[in-house]
């Protein structure tokens, strides 16, 4: 099979396939970052995470519509406003959900799982009723279309590059916030010792709410970025949720570096295998490997040493 290609062709296929893997990686990282904060730091299973992502995607879709209809001048840069709005919408909904639902269930993780699944069904139906069952896509500004030709055979689409840059930026921002900012320190303090954190004057309930909202907000940005490389439908979130959970668990809950590393491994493995076999078998093999490794090493790739 490999013998049929010349060396040059083979490297370019590898590069293209690697790039496809990187696009998948960006989506995984953006989705998993939010989940890693919510699941890793708070221990809450949010099955509606995909729907928060789709909320961001629909907000972006609306913005794209509004921009083309009313302010065509701003069209080339509408995306940045859309992303901010997507974050705000998902953040707001997240805070609301935490207040109405999650905060009553912190001690019952399995019940949180069921309740958020119910929430995800409701949100899906809301999207279907409001936006219709058909998948929608956004119109990209001209500067995001097209591709960069590196060599004769290797072409890199610009929107993919943009999403990737965005991913790096957001991952870095999240890392800085969790590691350096006062808020990040409070989050980690609450994670490690809730009672003590409360005793030194941290409003642990507020930190919970903000953390959950933040995780959802990042999912919103993920959805916004997602619209640039694929179309959005009411049930698109559900397709990704299990993959994303596996990414977070595989990386080791609570470790942001682990999440990024596992997103990279899984996405690269999947897209590399897609070259050799059908897409569904590649996915089966990747997921099976991940589940197999998790059975041998349940704590995931990277673990934080926390006194429990």
């Amino acid at each position: 099979m490999i013998g049929d290609y010349t060396f040059g062709e083979f490297t370019s296929i590898l590069a293209m396939q690697g790039f496809a893997g990187l696009s998948l990686f960006s989506v995984f990282v953006l989705m998993a970052l939010g989940l890693a904060i919510i699941f890793g730091q708070m221990g809450v299973i949010n099955m509606a995470h995909g729907e928060f992502m789709i909320l961001g995607a629909y907000v972006t879709y609306l913005c794209s519509h509004l921009a083309t209809e009313y302010v065509p001048v701003l069209f080339p840069v509408y995306f940045f406003a859309a992303m901010t709005l997507a974050f705000c919408a998902s953040f707001g909904l997240g805070v609301l959900v935490e207040w109405g639902l999650i905060r009553h269930l912190y001690r019952r993780p399995l019940d949180t799982l069921l309740a958020t699944w119910g929430l995800s069904l409701i949100l899906q139906q809301v999207y279907r009723s409001v936006f219709g069952a058909r998948e929608v896509g956004v119109t990209l500004p001209d500067w995001m279309m097209g591709s960069v030709a590196l060599t004769d055979m290797i072409e890199i689409p610009i929107n993919g590059l943009f999403v990737m840059g965005l991913t790096v930026l957001i991952a870095f921002a999240v890392y800085l916030m969790m590691a350096r900012s006062t808020f990040g320190k409070q989050v980690r303090a609450v994670l490690q010792n809730r009672v003590m954190a409360g005793a030194v004057g941290i409003d642990t309930k507020r930190v919970d709410r903000m953390t959950f909202g933040l995780g959802c907000g990042i999912a919103g940005i993920a959805g916004s970025a997602f619209t640039m490389i694929g179309s959005t439908g009411p049930t698109a979130g559900q397709l990704y949720i299990v993959d994303t959970f596996l990414v977070v668990v595989f990386g080791g809950a609570g470790s942001l570096i682990g999440t990024i590393a596992s997103a990279f491994t899984i996405s690269q493995a999947q897209s590399a295998m897609e070259f050799f076999m059908s897409g569904s078998m590649a996915k089966v093999l990747t997921l099976l490997t991940v589940v197999g490794i998790l059975m041998l090493r349940p704590q995931g790739l990277f673990t934080l040493n926390i006194r429990r």
């Binding site: 299973i45 993780p109 399995l110 799982l113 299990v242 959970f245 596996l246 668990v249 059908s278 569904s280 078998m281 996915k283 089966v284 997921l287 099976l288 991940v290 589940v291 998790l294 059975m295 041998l296 349940p298």
Partner: peptide
């Protein structure tokens, strides 16, 4: 045997269900 339980077990069983579906369809 490895004392994995709770939510991890739920997620893994869910992943297995997903894998089996993809396999059957594929």
């Amino acid at each position: 045997k490895r004392r994995v339980g709770g939510v991890y077990f739920a997620i893994i069983t869910q992943a297995v269900a997903a894998i089996l579906t993809i396999l059957i369809i594929g």
